[in-house]
């Protein structure tokens, strides 16, 4: 049986980790290679790098970073943030990323999903969806890190991106994100049931129970978390042991 995945997310600015795990034994906590190795040692199933670099010129540093991490760490890596064109996708894949996550660019020009997926295969194209509850009982898609609402319904958009060739969906609840009150389980489950590709739940994890809920009630295939791992609240190993005890298939 396929194991549920635990995916830590590292925020990257100008090629350095700005929000990563706080291991006491790290010589340089800002070094992505050290962070990635620490997560590999803990048993992370994948790594996601979220590029929050402001200037476009500094973007190549992420490609360089992925290349350096790939020389030392042997697990799937996703790069997201600032991917605008099919050329950006290519650059990241050539640098050694296994998957590239597209968000705002896909909303501005959905054709980029078709183009990138046809060329590189659906398995390496993730579409990230930032959704917020609306007063009509549904969820609205937001862009620009959750600041700008679109006209799009999150469920319809999820279906569309899969039809266009997305191989996976990274779903973030903007309501839950940062609250540590748990994932938006209804949103997660609705999207997971609406599409035929894997769904990664993101936003709101504060306890290990939250992870379990997203994977069971929310029907997510994977959970992405930042804070609970970065601040050392829990290790990946502790999370995995807990989820295994709950009867979930987990890789140890």
């Amino acid at each position: 049986m396929l194991a549920k995945r635990i995916i830590p997310c590292l925020d990257i600015r100008d090629g350095r980790v700005v929000k990563g795990v706080n291991f006491v034994d790290l010589i340089d906590a800002g070094d992505p290679v050290e962070q990635a190795r620490a997560y590999e040692a803990q048993g992370a199933d994948e790594l996601t790098f979220l590029d929050i670099t402001a200037s476009h010129e500094a973007r190549d540093t992420v490609g360089e970073l992925v290349k350096r991490v790939g020389e030392q760490v042997f697990m799937p890596m996703t790069v997201g943030g600032g991917i605008r064109t099919a050329a950006d996708v290519r650059r990241m894949l050539n640098a050694g990323a296994d998957k590239v996550s597209i968000n705002t660019a896909a909303l501005l020009d959905p054709g980029i999903i078709d183009e990138a997926s046809a060329f590189y295969g659906c398995q390496c194209i993730i579409v990230a969806i930032d959704a917020r509850r609306n007063d009509r009982g549904g969820w609205t898609v937001y862009t620009h890190g959750g600041r700008k609402p679109t006209e799009r319904d999150a469920i319809a958009w999820a279906r569309e991106v899969v039809d266009r060739g997305a191989g996976e969906i990274l779903l973030t609840s903007m309501d839950a994100d940062g609250t540590k009150d748990g994932y938006d389980l209804e949103l997660t489950r609705t999207v997971a049931e609406a599409v035929s590709v894997p769904v990664i739940a993101s936003g709101g994890a504060g306890t290990l129970e939250h992870l379990a809920e997203a994977l069971t009630i929310g029907k997510a295939d994977a959970v992405l978390a930042a804070s609970i791992f970065h601040f050392g609240t829990f290790t990946i190993g502790e999370a995995k042991a807990y989820l295994r005890e709950k009867g979930l298939e987990i890789r140890i």
Partner: peptide, 10 residues
Amino acid sequence: LKVPQMGWNR
């Protein structure tokens, strides 16, 4: 069953 199969299996 999600397709593609993506992740760790035995």
